[in-house]
């Protein structure tokens, strides 16, 4: 009786929170709590921008995995190979276009960055097609074999990177227009972080449009729910799968390229290191949902930066703790495509 009364009293609060955005308010809540705990506004702004930028880069890497996992029910541990390859391909193109990068021209600088990202995306598309057709297709509907074969493919991919680029860390040159910081009062905001945030946002908006405003997106969303029925309506979902796999791999490669520019020093183990975080983002956000992945990525980015500042010893465990807390509250993630 008392519990029912308590629940009744909480109902208006719940519906108000739901109206204001529901789980979408979580990053704001985390930011407000962090603001109180950090105290210094300038540090808080710096950490928040860093968290958002990191979140957007994680979103780029994770959104493809979420779509592949959610739509195709494929556990692709090889996804991180595309992150690594994207990083190395982009770094190589930037190194090759060193002349443009060092030129005193914004156009040439921007063109070099565009070429590097375009090369990473093209590699992701082509590699994604090859990976789906040769490695994934024979193991649909068999999770154990998927894990084994994609883990194997990841090892092969890492060895290929070692063979092609060597084992030493590779320096990633950054163009002048993406270096330095913008000073807002006593707050310094790195230009690259703003760039990462804006690019991530643009990709999110494009994906949102694709999934929610186009017929192709309608098919993808329907396929996440019931593949068989989509086929019974006359659509070749296997062909759609190839397209989604290519898109997901290209996004991972773009994320890898962005991360390479952010870290400026990359190793062949980059993808493997990012994989755990990427899986955490997908699990927190909920499978198959781009909105969920964005939410999960921003939460991971913010929490990692805030915890790293407030309790450095907890920094490594922060992602796991966040995932545990969210899964205890919402076992399907924050915004899964199918509940």
């Amino acid at each position: 009786m008392g519990q029912t009364q308590q629940e009744g009293a909480l109902e208006p609060l719940k519906s108000t929170l739901q109206r204001l955005g529901g789980v979408n308010l979580l990053p704001f809540a985390v930011a407000v709590i962090a603001f109180v705990l950090i105290g210094a506004p300038s540090s808080w702004v710096t950490l928040t921008v860093a968290g958002l930028a990191m979140g957007m880069m994680l979103f780029l890497m994770a959104s493809g995995l979420s779509l592949i996992f959610g739509l195709m029910d494929v556990l692709n541990f090889g996804h991180s190979a595309f992150i690594s390859f994207g990083a190395f391909v982009a770094a190589s193109v930037l190194a090759w276009l060193g002349g443009w990068l060092g030129a005193d021209s914004l156009v040439l600088n921007a063109l070099a960055v565009f070429c590097a990202f375009a090369a990473a995306i093209l590699f992701g598309l082509a590699g994604g097609w090859f990976f789906e057709v040769v490695i994934i297709k024979p193991v649909y509907r068999d999770h154990l074999r998927q894990i084994l074969i994609t883990m194997g493919a990841l090892i092969v991919a890492e060895q290929m990177i070692l063979a092609l680029w060597g084992g030493s860390p590779m320096t990633v040159p950054r163009p002048a227009f993406l270096t330095g910081s913008i000073l807002l009062g006593d707050v310094a905001i790195e230009v690259y972080r703003i760039f990462a945030f804006l690019l991530g946002l643009a990709v999110y908006l494009a994906l949102y449009w694709l999934l929610n405003r186009s017929r192709l997106g309608l098919l993808i969303r329907a396929g996440v729910e019931d593949r068989e029925m989509v086929e019974a309506l006359g659509f070749r979902i296997d062909r759609l799968f190839v397209g989604v796999f290519m898109l997901g791999s290209a996004l991972a490669a773009l994320g890898g390229a962005m991360w390479a520019g952010y870290e400026t020093l990359i190793t062949p183990a980059l993808g493997g290191q990012m994989m755990i975080v990427v899986f955490i983002v997908v699990i927190i956000g909920g499978l198959g949902s781009v909105e969920g992945t964005l939410l999960g990525a921003i939460m991971v980015g913010l929490v990692a930066n805030y915890v790293g500042f407030l309790a450095p010893k907890l920094a490594l465990a922060s992602n796991m703790l966040l995932m545990m807390a969210i899964l205890m509250w919402r076992p399907n993630g924050l915004r899964p495509a199918v509940t």
Partner: peptide, 16 residues
């Protein structure tokens, strides 16, 4: 029934 629960009635029909 094979209904796509996450889609609207209109979207379910337009897909067909």
């Amino acid at each position: 029934m094979g209904i796509f629960g996450g889609l609207t009635v209109e979207e379910n029909l337009i897909l067909a």
